[in-house]
Amino acid sequence: MSAKIRRYNFIKVLGEGQYAVVYKAKDTRTNDDVAVKKIKIGSRQEASDGINLTALREIKFLQEVKHPNVIELLDSFGEYGSNSPSICLVFEFMNTDLENIINNRNILLTATHTKSYMIMLLLGLEYLHNNWILHRDLKPNNLLIDKRGVLKIADFGLAKFFGSPSRLMSHEVVTRWYRSPELLFGAKKYGTGVDIWAAGLIMAELLLRIPLLPGDTDLGQLLKIFEVFGTPTDSNWPDAKTFSDYIEFKQMEPKPLRTIFTTSKPDELDVLERIMQLDPKRRPNASETLQMEYFSNPPAPCPSERLPKPKEIQQTESNKRKLGNDEKVTIKKDRP
């Protein structure tokens, strides 16, 4: 075990989450940059209740999946010798995430970029769904981008197998802005529709550069959804009234999407319209979505290596050069 820790040189802390700290590290064997997620277990007493469920889920699902658009777990090991025992998961190092790219005002996102990101997201999603895995926390922040521009689905802390006839599932999943109406109504049995809905909102965000439905509360979220897509009726969403948390809203008509996405072409609007339907049964699955005309129509999707990269990544190279020069200068000065 200790040998494995020595294999990775920790460089700096990248971020700290609820139950884990993520470090940037260097794999001394391959000389690659990696990200190490160190999951705290706490003392023996704390750990006796079992380790955090999200950590277990992450390990459980990531060990089984392998796809170009899903993050890869390279290695995992335990560290129990020190006073804070922990589990370490080693991932490939990712340069940025989609949230960063959407929020970076210096980056220009064109129709070809949006198409490319959506294709990569849907291919990853198709793979997960075909393996009976629901991600349940899709959002731009969880879609990481590697140095070659490839998008990878990450963070399986809320993932779950679906398709069991008897098991009930929690409706309190997915970050609120990307949560589908059936979850907000308290559905305890659901399917791939929850991920597809989130994918639709991610596409909307790529086009608008701001979240389409930023609700403050669960009720506010439903209101925001219905303001755009109209209130549920017997024809657009049969049986919706049977939900345990169903609430009747003041009736609203759906807004034509072209008034929101003013620059989108008809084939693009068609995708948004179909994958963000109130009734989850009517939303196409990932494979069906990928077969829609929009994806095969010109303009062709931008190749991943030509997708935009945030300035910081490009600058690190030039910064290094600058630092190098400075060092040389000081050396010269020291000489008598």
């Binding site: 049995k189 791939t192 049964k281």
Partner: peptide, 22 residues
């Protein structure tokens, strides 16, 4: 051979094709 889904399950996007196929 698979139980018909309840209306509330259908509304949530669960179909009996899921358990059957799985």
């Amino acid at each position: 051979h698979v139980r018909q889904e309840k209306p509330v399950e259908r509304a949530g996007g669960y179909t009996r094709e899921y358990p059957c196929l799985r």
